[in-house]
Design a protein around this nucleic acid. Structure first.
Length: 549
RNA sequence: GCGGGUGUGGUGUAGUCUGGUAUCACUUAAGCUUGCCAAGCUUAUAACUCGGGUUCAAAUCCCGGCACCCGCACCA
């Protein structure tokens, strides 16, 4: 059976505890995977690398919001309408069927229902009531009296729904970014691409809020000469960030900056630069809310170019949707240099007269009067309320000219969203770093993971199982662990076998203690990629690892 | 979801047509050995995807479920 890199990587991943199908003893479930011990560490390392860039380089705020998300939120965001498949019901047996299973051309469903040509595949009854069924995982909150909810299809909505609080936390200044790492859920029709298409998956998302009039980025000038790897659906090319923006290839500095961050994170994380590019969405594939979108694509031998990160300018879409649906003030304020004084006329009702006259309606009518804009002369002031017109006599109000301060103008911030599929990136990193070499006529494989990504940083071995060597090795192992350096102690078999075990899981270094160590207090440090060895003082070991990148 | 293919220890496999208690290698573990790149020897652990049927007897034949792979569709 011919094996491609995918097969080999997946085999290794399962054998060595990186990633493997979930619940396999019960037959497994497509689209669900376990991260094993090494996989979990690898994932932590990628997520922490990502955090480093977004929190320390870009000053973003990290938050955590529930994966269970209220129906109303996802209705406002458009997911309830968009994540759907059409289904029909049987009039007799009440079963439901997906329209695409029943009829070839979904667009002709209405006509087919009218013609009564659709019959139930189970009982032969008439199929009626075509309606969309959502592909999000639905659930209910509470027992008895419940509220509808879904497992979130993206982490972003949790950020948007807290925007007004976060905006205050950021002291009402734009731009600022909010990040969230977490699980997302999609009940995929047919998740058949291994870790590339999962039903429960990890995402790292940033929502960076901008004034729509100013999508510049404060760090841009610092990094503007970096080259971006671009693809416009016709050819691949490279431009500096500055050129890309000034030539209009990339719409604004902010998009360009997050593309730069993305490229840097991925390549530092171990993505092969030759298997990396940004692809610009063509106009006809843009989501209806997006003004521009670039995908970071990673090349896989099995799957071709895989979309692993989407960097979209989502404009004001989401915040606007939540303002309208929830009636919450989520506007941002563009402050004037000094407050504007606006003069206008106002009606001030005399409540000592109106009160006794209007009785219980007085309060509501006052509220209406307070909201009225006054232009020109007022004659016969009448207020419509609960279907009746109430005449307010002239002696019951004054018209006064008031001055109001306006500190600024309200607007809906725009959102630039870099959204990372962690699992896809991890798979591609494994694939890109999987190396097969010939070694003494044997095929030998290793993972050339960058130091930062490697789940285990070093092996610690006594050259032979001799008590004088093992006790030093164990001590070195313990010391390194106390310094937060993950190690793997191994005293079994030959030294070559132990090196091989470490190479296969991407461990960049191995320390060997031999008899010379007893005299000179030095150990052999072996490099995974060069296989070179050097002698290092035992005392210098913690620093040696802390200097690695 | 449709059509086709596949499913055997931890991993990769032989055996399936032609039914009779499952082959080999690597890995793992214990021991001997071992002085820097998967050495060797001994021993041990360990598998027929699941359910039903046919049969004296099923990894093997039949039916169904599940998963994976390819194509189509779907999704982005």
């Amino acid at each position: 059976m011919p094996q491609d890199v995918y097969d080999k990587v997946i085999m290794l991943a399962k054998r060595r505890g990186f990633i493997y199908p979930s619940f396999e003893i019960y037959g497994g479930v497509a689209g669900l995977y376990d991260y094993g011990p090494l996989g979990s560490q690898l994932k932590n390392n990628l997520e922490n690398l990502w955090r480093y860039f977004y929190i320390y380089k870009d000053s973003c705020l990290e938050i955590n919001t529930p994966t269970i998300t209220l129906y109303d939120v996802l209705e406002a965001s458009g997911h309830v309408d968009e994540f759907t498949d059409l289904t029909v019901d049987c009039e007799d047996c009440k079963l439901s069927f997906k329209v695409e299973d029943i009829i070839e051309d979904e667009s002709s469903i209405q006509q087919a229902i009218k013609d009564e040509t659709l019959i139930c595949p189970t009982c032969g009854g008439k199929l009626i009531n075509p309606h969309p069924v959502n592909l999000m995982f639905a659930t209910k909150i509470g027992i008895g009296k419940t509220r509808d909810a879904f497992l979130r299809p993206e982490t972003a909505q949790g950020i948007f729904t807290g925007f007004h609080l976060l905006y205050r936390y950021a002291r009402e200044k734009l731009p600022f970014g909010v990040i969230q790492l977490g699980k997302g859920y999609r009940n995929e029709v047919s998740p058949r691409q291994g870790p590339i298409r999962m039903r429960e998956f990890s995402m790292a998302e940033a929502e960076v809020f901008f004034d729509p009039n100013n999508k510049s980025h404060k760090n841009f000038s610092e990094v503007k000469d970096h080259i971006l790897y671009l693809y416009d659906n016709e050819s691949e090319f490279q431009l500096t960030m500055e050129d890309a923006v000034s030539k209009g290839v990339i719409n604004n500095q902010a998009l360009s900056y997050y593309m730069y961050l993305t490229q840097t994170i991925l390549i530092q994380g171990g993505v092969d630069p030759k298997k990396f590019r940004f692809r610009k969405h063509a106009d006809d594939e843009l989501a209806h809310y997006a003004e521009e979108c670039w995908d970071a694509e990673l090349f896989s031998e099995r799957f071709g170019w895989v979309e692993c990160v989407g960097i979209a300018d989502r404009s004001a879409y989401d915040i606007n949707a939540h303002i309208e649906a929830s009636k919450t003030d989520m506007y941002a304020m563009r402050r004037y240099e000094s407050p504007k004084i606006v003069k206008h006329k106002k009606i001030v009702p005399k409540m000592n007269i109106l009160g006794p006259k209007l009785k219980d309606k007085a309060g509501d009518i006052k509220a209406i009067i307070d909201e009225m804009e006054v232009t020109g002369q007022i004659e016969n002031l009448t207020i419509p309320f609960e279907g009746e017109e109430y005449l307010i006599p002239k002696d019951a109000y004054d018209v006064v000219e008031v001055e109001e301060k306006e500190a600024g103008e309200k607007f809906i911030p725009h959102v630039i969203e870099p959204s990372y599929g962690i699992d896809r990136i991890l798979y591609c990193i494994l694939e890109h770093n999987y190396k097969e070499i010939e070694k003494e006529n044997e095929s030998y494989h290793l993972l050339s993971l960058p130091y930062q990504m490697a789940p285990i940083k070093t092996g610690v071995f006594p050259l032979i199982k001799d008590e004088s060597l093992t006790c030093i090795s164990e001590k070195i192992d313990k010391t390194l662990r106390e310094h937060g350096i993950s190690t793997s102690y191994d005293e079994t078999g030959t030294i070559g076998r132990r090196y091989a075990r470490m190479d296969e899981i991407g461990t960049p270094f191995c320390i060997t203690v031999d008899h010379d160590t007893l005299d000179d207090k030095k150990v052999t440090m072996r490099n995974r990629d060069t296989r070179e060895q050097e002698r290092i003082d035992i005392d210098a070991l913690p620093d040696f690892f802390k200097k690695q990148k």
